[in-house]
Design a protein around this nucleic acid. Structure first.
Length: 548
DNA sequence: ATAGGGTTAG
């Protein structure tokens, strides 16, 4: 009897340990201590332990600890369900809920449903949510504020605004959370006006409400209103800053994002990742890397979003040395490499930086290879002189039954061009338009122009550019000018160059190309005339770009 | 002792 009723003071000391726990590893140590001290069956301690598993995103560990309990009560069951609802796929969560229904000593209560419903709304699982709602009615829990709010949130996120509003209007006691759930519902279906009028109508708002409005405006692209809300709110937290930083970053206004980031008193991992991926997505990989290093030096643990941003920056920089360091860093971190987007970014980085062996072996390790990873690998091969391998991968992809999209075709056409596979490229262009009904973009045309031009079929390339239903961009003309230089076609080169001087008058590369065409033909007078013209327009030669 | 908000790749 004495052995099975351990002193409450040791339970208390373990509970105190839990509060200071900072990693999954120390959580495991605490679990070992709980078992050693014979406190395993302590229901309060078990509940707290499970909620810490949830905090460390370890639902499987929560389950394994839970499975050792001989007679879990409903509260412990609820804690387990919450751990899964936040971190497991919906089917797993539903399985836990079904077990709970069968095995819990008492029927589900008002604490059971909010987490289950939030899992449903996260997956926009409308039908499942309906049946959960039916269960709630059977249990007589629809009037509970938490349950009702979770229902409003669920219907709102599933864009069933009518159902959500009915539940909202018939509520006896609403709190800020219920109002916010309704507002978020309107926001997620893009009804900013209704959201705004509810916001104005509600008696008391909290930080979450303000943040929801900011996020809604950011997502709808109205950064001015988002900023007004941000400036007006009585108190801000990291989320308020990060939503707006993210908005500025996605709109390409890194300067404004940076100012807010510098003002943010307590940066969390979200704000760091907003800046890092913001810079990476706007073609400023150097700046992304600098922010990452700042974060790294502050010993902040990166999450998957940070490393995806970092790897994307590294891909753009193309440095093999850096890629090797980042690869090692990411592999050694606790980040789950099997997550699709992490793996895709890792493959892409190695591929773009020329570590094809590593890229290929990562690719081979994927159980379900997706379009994006195929594209990454194809681009790597294409970039590093193995266009034929890239095209081979594309064939393999088709055989696997994957449906290539617009970007895939851009990649494969570029690969064909590099490998000199003119006929195959043409076939793929036809396949794209005739079978996949993809309307060719300026990029696709630019690839085709490059393909034909490199093969010396300049007239055909020129005809293609002129027959384009969309406006060709500088890339297409540039490819053709490059081809003219390659094949020494002066007269076409002059025509194209004149066109390019109009479209991008300050790009020195175009002047250099034309000058090279003249030089090869010994037309030095034209070369010097061109230089004078450049000087007259104040155009500077880009360093590292040769004249001849 | 348990319950509501944020980002990700070619």
């Amino acid at each position: 009897m004495l052995a099975s009723s351990p002193s409450s003071s040791s339970a208390l000391s373990v509970a105190a340990l839990l509060i200071s726990c900072r990693s999954l590893r120390s959580l495991e140590q605490i679990h070992a201590r709980i078992i050693r001290k014979g406190l395993e069956q302590h229901p309060v301690l078990a509940t707290r332990f499970l909620s810490f598993c949830a905090a460390f995103s370890a639902p499987a560990y929560a389950s394994s600890a839970f499975d050792r309990l001989s007679a879990p009560n409903l509260i412990v069951w609820n804690a387990l369900l919450t751990a899964h609802a936040r971190h497991s796929p919906l089917p797993t969560t539903v399985a836990v809920f079904n077990l709970l229904r069968r095995r819990s000593p008492v029927p589900p209560d008002a604490f059971t449903f909010p987490s289950l419903l939030s899992s449903c709304s996260h997956s926009v699982a409308l039908l499942l949510g309906f049946s959960v709602h039916a269960t709630i009615l059977r249990c007589g829990l629809e009037a509970d504020v938490f349950v009702r709010t979770a229902l409003i949130d669920f219907y709102g996120k599933c864009r069933e605004l009518g159902a959500a509003r009915k539940l909202f209007d018939s509520m006896r006691h609403r709190n800020e959370v219920s109002w916010t759930a309704m507002i978020v519902g309107y926001l997620s279906s893009g009804d900013l006006a209704s959201a705004r009028s509810l916001f104005d109508e509600m008696p008391k708002r909290n930080v979450v409400t303000w943040n929801a409005m900011i996020d809604g405006y950011v997502k709808s692209g109205d950064l001015v209103s988002a900023r007004q809300f941000f400036d007006k709110m009585p108190e801000r937290n990291a989320v308020s800053y990060t939503s707006l930083i993210d908005g500025y970053a996605k709109a390409g206004d890194l300067a404004s994002a940076r100012v807010l980031f510098e003002q943010l008193p307590e940066r969390d991992v979200f704000s760091w990742s907003a800046m890092i991926s913001g810079y990476a997505q706007n073609g400023q990989p150097g700046a992304a890397l600098k922010i990452f290093l700042e974060m790294y030096n502050q010993n902040i643990k990166p999450d998957e979003f940070v490393v995806v941003g970092l790897m994307s920056a590294c891909s753009q920089l193309g440095s093999l040395t850096l890629a090797k360091w980042v690869d090692l860093y990411v592999t050694r971190s606790s980040i789950d490499l099997s997550k699709a987007h992490v793996l895709a970014a890792l493959i892409d980085m190695n591929s773009k930086c020329g570590n094809m062996e590593r890229a290929a072996s990562l690719f081979e390790s994927m159980p379900n290879k997706d379009l994006i990873s195929y594209c990454s690998l194809m681009q790597g091969y294409s970039l590093h002189g193995a266009g034929d391998k890239a095209v081979g991968l594309f064939r393999q992809m088709l055989e696997e039954g994957l449906m290539p999209d617009s970007i895939t075709f851009t990649v494969v056409l570029a690969a064909c061009s590099r490998a000199g596979l003119v006929e195959e490229g043409r076939q793929y262009f036809d396949l794209m338009t005739n079978e996949h009904l993809i309307v060719p973009s300026p990029d696709h045309y630019a690839c085709m122009v490059d393909l034909l031009g490199r093969a010396g079929r300049l007239t055909e390339a020129y005809e293609l550019i002129r027959s384009m239903p969309v406006e060709p961009h500088a890339g297409a003309w540039g490819a053709l000018l490059g081809a003219c230089r390659l094949h020494g076609d002066i007269s076409l080169g002059e025509t194209i160059a004149r066109k390019l001087f109009e479209i991008e008058p300050t790009n020195a590369g175009n002047y250099v190309l034309l000058s090279n065409i003249y030089a090869v033909a010994d037309r030095w007078a034209d070369v010097s005339e061109l230089r004078t013209m450049m000087r007259g327009k104040g155009i500077r030669k880009v360093p590292g770009c040769t004249w001849i």
